[in-house]
Design a protein around this nucleic acid. Structure first.
Lengths: 192, 192, 192, 192
DNA sequence: TACTAACCGAGACGGTACGTCGCGTCTTCAC
DNA sequence: GTGAAGACGCGACGTACCGTCTCGGTTAGTA
């Protein structure tokens, strides 16, 4: 007895080549200008092999995103000093997206998220917002550095959102973002 | 003194028709699926007339944006109650982007901003963030409802950013956004 | 042994439809006004399918020409009476090119030949000059009705050339052409 | 009493510039690729000035043709030796149309004649067929070197036609044309 | 001398066609 | 019986010219 079907099984090599090609081209040319034919060419694969397994360009990008093929990990350290840790994270993130064509990378991802729900659903996750940023904020709450009712996930998304809005505006104001973070984390009692 | 050249002058009728068509199609089909040929057809205009005056699809959208042809005005009332006013604004905004294909509208705009610097440069402005939201926050500062060092523009962009991130994630959590706003506006002395 | 590549094969149906459409449109609208887009539309085919296989509009016309899709066959009978046979041929040819828009047909073909070497190379052949006219002249030589050193192919081309020159001049002088043919075939000994 | 209209009169300078530009561009790029806008640009003239005075591209070319701006004069000498004179003429003509892009010149002219009646009507004339070739043949008739009933104009056109047909075929067979001329001029009594 | 109408350059306009690229589907052949 | 290769109908791209039109500036002639 066997529920194995006959014939070759999905080619893992092809799958890898396709995802690698997607990530490489996404990096090189951005989301618009990312084409199925280009991916197939780059991966040495037939178009049909792509269409067989992924419904859309966006689904490919989404899979690259969750597979961490697109961005480095943006981890937030935990030294105990919440503000300093967030500054470190901000430096890392801004460092990447200000690198030559790094901003294009973030904007490309936003474009992909806007166009394709599959990408959108993994945007925060793919950038490590929940895993790192919100987690660090939650740790800050536990440590008493933030109010107990702090909505950590939303706060993380607001910070990410501020970075995105600034990137969309092609502006590049580190100081403003630092000021924002400082304001967001202001100690409610410190001013009292 | 004269930098006038002779010859026919730019047709105002064509310009209007093109911008109207752009806004109408943007609404109807979204940013991807928005084509120059479609705009020309809708406007009853030759393609070349578009290419003569605008360098890209994005530039057209940007001009619609600054000309307030794309979104209703998202004004923030000023009743004296900052939190209530922001709730009102949030209701308005979320009401629009949750309308059938309203979310598509915001996401389309984000896609346009990601692709084209001209749109990006006018994103906040076109949504009235500076004019209305940041201005209301600044008024709150003057009224003593927010700390004097509140970075109002950045705070406005963070709120917009949170809305955008949520929209990109195709989530729809009013309550979370309200909680965020409440948290952001928490009175530093109220908790003391 | 194999220079076969894998993959789909050229569609015979598309090829037929394209050539038919080309011939039909050539007839209907002439060589200028013959457009690739028009052919594609008429044939129910994508433009790219045309560009994939033919380098130019002229190449299409040339292929119609050699495939005898453009002109009826201009055969020269052989009754033994050379002069009468040529008169018959002349009647046929002039009958066609004087039909409403028949002259346009010949001139269109000349225009195509002038613009595109592929057409030019098949002009005489496509009109049956070598196959019919020159062959009949050669038969006349063998029958002693023309000198043995008669350059039959060139003579055929000269007759065709006279028809073409007259057609280009939009003149319509049957009698002159008959006189010319009579003169060209004048028996060297008959006058002695 | 006066039917003079007021205002400036047609600019001779513009007319000259346009015809010169037409001839120059015809030479340089051929009849197809000859555009009204290109002529206007080359001549430093507004398009409307062209459309005001000429109905079509062909009319411009025709006027260049009759104004002898396009071809050198193809004169036939008259040394008394008809055959030698025609050989000389043939050498001249073939020399021009075999020059680099000289064949393009003749073919361009044929294309123009095929497309535009105005050009067609002046083709023979513009090439000097009637004025020179037919006249020389007629002189040959008068000198008894050709039969008295020789249709000189048609014979001239047949010779021109043979040259054209050969040029359209992109062939280049001097000897064949010489043989043809020899045959056409064969003395009817010499063989007797 | 001033008026005025036609000509001039320049070029914007609504169009049509160009030749190219990518889409998503379908078909063939080799492994 | 999968997977590469790629042809297919389709639609949009951005460009070149078409022939018409509208400008401001520049001449002639009247008046």
């Amino acid at each position: 007895m066997s529920d194995h079907r006959s014939g070759p099984v999905r080619s893992a090599a092809a799958r890898e080549a396709i995802l690698d090609a997607t990530a490489a081209l996404f990096d090189r040319v951005g989301y618009d200008h990312l084409t199925i034919e280009g991916i197939a060419r780059e991966a040495g694969v037939g178009k049909q092999t792509i269409y067989r397994w992924w419904p859309s360009r966006g689904a490919l990008v989404a899979e690259c995103l969750v597979g961490r093929r697109l961005f480095p990990d943006f981890d937030v350290p935990d030294t105990g000093d919440l503000l300093a840790d967030l500054d470190t994270w901000l430096d890392t993130v801004l460092g990447v997206i200000e690198a030559p064509s790094g901003g294009d990378l973030l904007r490309s991802l936003v474009a992909a998220a806007a166009e394709d729900p599959a990408v959108g659903g993994h945007l925060s996750e793919g950038l490590g917002i929940e895993r790192s940023l919100a987690a660090r904020l939650a740790a800050g709450v536990r440590a008493g550095q933030l109010p107990v009712d702090t909505p950590a996930p939303q706060l993380g998304e607001a910070i990410l959102g501020a970075v995105i809005v600034q990137s969309l505006g092609r502006s590049d104001d580190h100081a403003a973002l630092r000021r924002l973070v400082r304001f967001l984390l202001r100690s409610p009692t410190a001013d009292a």
